[in-house]
Write a protein that binds this DNA or RNA. Structure first.
Lengths: 339, 339
DNA sequence: CTGGAACGGGAGAGCGCTCTCCAGACCTTG
DNA sequence: CAAGGTCTGGAGAGCGCTCTCCCGTTCCAG
């Protein structure tokens, strides 16, 4: 432990002032005589003094750290979640906001009930000022648990019980409507969709929105096959769709990866995209660009949403909101080649 | 700040013992009479006491936190790095190890000189016990800076000056050799490679290893085009290769994404993979599986390497090593359909 | 010239915990 | 039975910082 350097006390003594004064210039609080400021700064420079975070936290009750929690279902998925570019985009946005506000994210994973308990326990020790929760599970108890422990929380995605905790979300139904209208405008006559587990609110909204938009254009009979967000499930769903409805000419998938799977299957069957079958994805993730053909997709501004989430949490920590707040983002159709 | 709960003192008073005794029970240090232990535990349970992290850190000089630093070149890439599945795999491995050892990673990004200074500054405040550095830049000064600040460091990938800081790495040359031999064994006659920036040690090793393996089989004339790890650069490199050497029938790319780009270009040119041209990638990342055809690739056990990195750091923190240590992993050829 | 506001600096009390001593009780052992 | 362990619990000194008081100056209005 030879790592410890000079303390406030040391600087104060060497500069011939009190600890309080050094503290003041370090934190830029209250007026301090410019000459003394200069002297203190110089002494700090010279001694290589660095304020000790733990000591400061002990008295301020603040850590300038927030938890970024991946809360989800089961170990199996947990190992994959980090491979999901979606998560990377969230991290990117969060880090971007935090670092410019002198805060830092600590990464936590809560994939089981036991893990959730641990996370709450950990945060109850005052390790972080608040929590950002990215939940990949339908009815996640974690947000409520954190709120109960009086830890400021902001969620990515809508919680089961709205208005109970702050969150940022996308207008999923609206995004799905854009996809439906685009397919309609292209002249597609037999439109189908590859949905995702309906226990997830976002997936539900996408399907409902898609159906509603078609219905209001008079299209009522829309084949649906449910996938699970993976490439393979998309391909399998497409296979089922194609065998049940050989004349399908327009497909909307609930995410890009499934859309890519659908594209791969269609091509193997000799279908041209978009001439024979138009395909639209959701998210505008990296696969939308690398897919052949590049995917027309509903863009979810994940980074922006992540930034908003971080800002919201920061505001909560500062006590700017007494009530939960939610921010809704618009979806946007990105037209590439697949539709 | 109504968030603060009972303290050690409170528990001690209520249980009728001293602070020291409660501390002993909490930390499981020294013998404490079973009855008293029981009593204390019960009191803790009842009061909902949670040890305060800051207070503990202040005296122990430990935080049970390590920094996970992405150090790299330029803002532009920084935003993309989190989208790279490679990074996700690192995070996954690191988190996996740390959580089972009651430690947590705080995410830092050091993309510029200023940012690097900040990172060192931040860690000098005793915010973390050590640092895990994933560098995506050739000659990164950060590791040395951290070492100079007496902060334990472990690197992912070989540093410029070996033996100066602990690290984990892959036997890149060996992996490239596996690829070369596989191509040779398939009977490829005109073999080429898509390399990556030679300023990066790993990229250099892959190219050198590939060439050396071919040379020892008597193949000396190997066309090389350099890409930059992206899909597009892979496609462009393939285009160049094909126009200069129309009879190319085997290609080794320095990563999967470029291999995918090459595949896409080849297919657009009507080439069959692997019949006309065999393609091998590197990393065995997620795109290796989603690529059509699925890529034969050199597997880099990123998660395992990340775990090793975390363990190594943990050992350094505990003072188990006085000298830098390095761990080298074997590469493995994963044969799928592209070669 | 004086009263008092405004300003700048110091003293000192903690923040909640760990850990080194120290003292007493209880065992051994020659 | 005395002499020296061994074991267990308590007292108390910090860890390094912030922040509230408090006190001495300065400055200006009346």
């Amino acid at each position: 432990m030879s790592r410890k350097g000079p303390t406030l006390e040391d600087v104060a003594r060497q500069a011939g002032v009190s600890r309080a004064t050094v503290s003041r210039v370090v934190n830029g609080i209250r007026n301090v005589d410019p000459d003394i400021q200069e002297l203190v700064r110089h002494t700090i420079e010279q001694t290589g003094y660095r304020p000790n975070r733990a000591a400061r936290s002990l008295v301020t009750q603040r850590t300038e750290t927030v938890a970024l929690i991946i809360s989800g279902a089961g170990d199996a998925y947990t190992s994959r979640v980090f491979a999901d570019p979606f998560f990377g985009r969230v991290v990117s946005g969060v880090v971007g906001y935090l670092r410019s506000h002198a805060m830092h994210p600590v990464l936590l994973v809560a994939e089981s009930d036991a893990a959730r308990e641990q996370v709450v326990e950990y945060l109850s020790q005052g390790t972080a000022d608040g929590a950002l929760v990215v939940s990949i599970q339908a009815a996640d108890p974690l947000p409520e648990m954190l709120t109960a422990a009086r830890i400021p929380v902001v969620l990515f995605a809508r919680p089961e019980h709205p208005h109970t905790v702050s969150h940022v979300d996308l207008a999923h139904a609206e995004g799905a409507r854009l996809a439906a209208e685009h397919l309609l405008a292209r002249g597609c006559r037999q439109i189908a969709t590859i949905s995702a587990p309906q226990s997830i609110p976002a997936a539900r909204d996408r399907l409902d929105g898609f159906r509603a938009a078609l219905a209001s254009a008079g299209v009522v009979d829309v084949p649906v096959v449910e996938g699970n967000f993976t490439l393979d499930s998309g391909a399998a769903a497409m296979a089922e769709l194609l065998s049940d409805h050989p004349d399908v000419d327009g497909v909307f998938a609930a995410n890009d990866l499934m859309a890519q799977g659908a594209c791969q299957f269609l091509r193997e069957r000799g279908k041209r995209i978009p001439q024979d079958v138009a395909v639209i994805g959701f998210d505008d993730s990296s696969v939308a660009v690398t897919c052949r053909p590049p995917l027309t997709t509903v863009r979810q501004p994940v980074e922006k949403m992540a930034v908003a989430m971080a800002r919201l949490l920061s505001e909560h920590i500062q006590g700017m909101h007494t009530e939960p707040v939610s921010v809704l983002f618009d979806a946007e159709l990105v037209v590439r080649e697949s539709a």
